[in-house]
Design a protein around this nucleic acid. Structure first.
Lengths: 249, 249
DNA sequence: CGCGGGCTTGATGCCTTTCAACTTTAGTGG
DNA sequence: CCACTAAAGTTGAAAGGCATCAAGCCCGCG
C-alpha cells in the first residue's frame, strides 16, 4: 500500500468512496507523478493555453481568476488540497480562466486523454467524477447568492467560513485559525468589493468580536454568530453514492 | 425513426454528438415519456423534496431559485429547451434549490437510477453528460463575474444577451426579439438588483437605443453595442469530444 | 366595474466606491 | 544589523450607485 497513498486521486476519491484495489491501481497508471509548483506559477492562462489536462491538488493553494473589461480581476474559484483543478475546461480547447498557484503546491497532472480510459473502464469512478463536478456547481451557486444579494459584511464572513469549511474536509482536526493566503485585494476580487471596503469590513468583523486578525491569518472567535451574520449554509461534503455503478473487480 | 425524435435526450445530445442507433434506443428506454407541466408548477422545492431525478426540457422555460435569509429570493439558473434540470442535486439526497415552471413545459423525467445504466453501458454518453455539466459550471462563473464586478446596466445587458444566446442554440433562425417570461422583479432576483432599479436600467438601455420594449418582450436593436456595454463573452455552445470513449456498437 | 399584480417614477438615505495620503510589513542589499 | 524599497494595509473625505419608501399608473381578470 506504500506509494499508493502518494496518488493525489486516491487520497481525494477515497474520501468519498472506498476504492477497490483495481481502481487504485488503474488510477495510479493514469495520473502523472506529483510535481511541486512554487507560489506565483501560472498553471494556465485564459484564452491562451490549451486546456488538455486536469490537476489534482495534493497540497497547497491555487485560485482561478479572469480578467475584467476594466482591467480588474475576479476570483472565480479557490482550490484546496483534494480539489480537481481545470474541470471547467473539459468542454473547451482553450482555458477559460487563469489558474495561479498561491501557495507552493504539489499537483498531479491528469491528461484529458486519461479520462477516456477512466470513463470506459471504471464507470463507478466516472460517476464519482461527475458528482464531484456537480458539487463544484453547487459551491458556485452558493457564491452567486452571497455576492448577488448580501452586503459586504456577509460576503466576507461567507468567504471566511467557506475557506475553513473546505480546509476541514481534508483536515478533520482543523482549528479556527486560518491562514488565508490572500491579500485584501484578493478577497475583494473574490467577493466583489474594493480592497478598501474589504479592509473596513474585516475591521468591523473584528470589532464585533467575531474574528481576530494577525497578519493574514484570521481566527474565528464566534463561529456560530459569524454563520448568522454571513447566512452561511454548510454543505455536506459527502456524496450520494446509491446510484453509482458497481466497482470493477 | 419516428417517435425517436420525441425523446428529449436525443434532441438534446444529438446537438453535440452524432448518436448511434444503439445509444438512441437505450436512451429511449431510460427516460420517461414527455409530460406537460403548466406554468407555476414547482418541480421540486429546496430542502424539502427528494432529489431523485433529472428532467430534460423539451420545450418551455423553468428557473431554479433559492430563498434568502431576508425572505427574498435569488434566481440561480434559467433553464431552456435542451437543458438538463436538476444536475446539481446529483450528489445530494434533498433538492438544493427550488425549480419552478415559468412557461408551460414539456419535460422528460430521467430517474437518477437510470444514470447507473447510462454510465455502465454508455461511457461516451457519460462523458457527454459530464461535459454538459461543466458547461453549466462555466455559465455560472460567467454570471459570477457579471454580478460581482459590473454595474446594473451591464448586468441586465448581460442577462438579455445570455437569454438570446441560449435560445439560439436550439433555434438557429432566432431573431432579436425575446419574450423574457420574467417580471422585472424576476430579473432583479437574477442579477442582484431591486425591481425598481431594474426598471430604471431597462429604461436606460432603451433610452440609449440599445433595446426596445413592448410588454415583457425585448427587441435588441444594437446587439454589438449591447455586447460592449455588458462585457458579454459568447461561449461556443459546442463541446470538445476528442477524448470521448468510442460509442458502443 | 373593481381588484390585484406588475410597471413606473420621485425623494431620501445608505452602502460602497473613488481618490488620496499615510502607515506598516516584508524583503533586499550594504 | 540597519537603511531602503515596494507591496500591502489603514484611514478619511467626498461622490455615486443602488436600496428603500411611497405613490400613482396600467392592464388583465373575475
Amino acid at each position: 500500500m506504500s506509494g499508493v497513498s502518494d496518488s493525489c486521486f486516491i487520497n481525494k476519491l477515497d474520501h468519498y468512496l472506498q476504492l477497490t484495489e483495481r481502481e487504485k491501481l488503474d488510477l495510479l497508471v493514469l495520473e502523472e507523478s506529483p510535481q511541486v509548483y512554487e507560489a506565483g506559477t501560472v498553471l494556465y492562462a485564459e484564452d491562451k493555453d490549451e486546456a488538455d489536462a486536469l490537476y489534482i491538488v495534493q497540497s497547497g493553494r491555487l485560485h482561478a481568476s479572469t480578467v475584467l473589461a476594466d482591467g480588474g480581476r475576479a476570483l472565480l474559484k479557490l482550490h484546496f488540497a483534494g480539489d480537481i483543478v481545470g474541470t471547467s475546461n473539459i468542454p473547451f480547447t482553450t482555458a477559460i480562466s487563469t489558474v495561479t498557484v498561491v501557495r507552493e503546491a504539489r499537483l498531479c497532472r491528469f491528461p484529458r486523454s486519461s479520462l477516456t480510459t477512466l470513463f470506459e473502464v471504471h464507470p463507478r469512478l466516472a460517476a464519482l467524477f461527475y458528482s464531484v463536478g456537480m458539487l463544484e456547481n453547487v459551491s458556485l451557486t452558493d457564491r452567486l447568492r452571497s455576492i448577488g444579494r448580501t452586503d459586504g459584511l456577509s460576503r466576507i464572513g461567507s468567504l471566511l467560513l467557506e475557506i475553513t469549511s473546505r480546509l476541514r474536509v481534508t483536515n478533520k482536526d482543523f482549528g479556527n485559525e486560518v491562514e488565508l493566503h490572500m491579500t485584501q485585494a484578493d478577497i475583494g476580487d473574490a467577493v466583489g468589493l474594493t480592497h478598501v471596503h474589504v479592509n473596513r469590513m474585516l475591521r468591523e468583523l473584528a470589532d464585533q468580536g467575531l474574528i481576530e486578525r494577525t497578519g493574514s491569518t484570521v481566527t474565528i472567535l464566534d463561529e456560530d454568530r459569524l454563520r448568522e451574520v454571513a447566512h452561511f449554509t454548510e454543505r455536506y461534503h459527502r456524496i450520494e453514492t446509491d446510484w453509482f455503478p458497481a466497482a470493477k473487480e
